[in-house]
Amino acid sequence: MGEFKNAGIRPVAISVDSPQTSANLCRRAGYSFTFLSDTDTEVTRRYNLLHHAGGPDGHDIARPAEFLVDSGGVVRWVNFTEDIRVRARADEMLAAARGIR
């Protein structure tokens, strides 16, 4: 996380969880970055990342995705995993961040 900060990257997590659920997660896991709640999946749909009925009890959720967005709002790096167990490579993302300005 410190590496992100040094690279000038602000991490922002987005899920369908309510602000309360995300607040509990942050407290439990000690996360200090921004967590946003897309409870009605409106933004997830806008990014075309909806996983229809992908959550427990058939709830709509987001398929995992990471975007590096520069200060002009332009996407500079993306990662769409094919396997929900496989995470993004932080080194790839940091390399992309170094290429910005």
Partner: peptide, 8 residues
Amino acid sequence: KAVLLVFY
């Protein structure tokens, strides 16, 4: 420099 949006 950039924002990392993480959809989970």
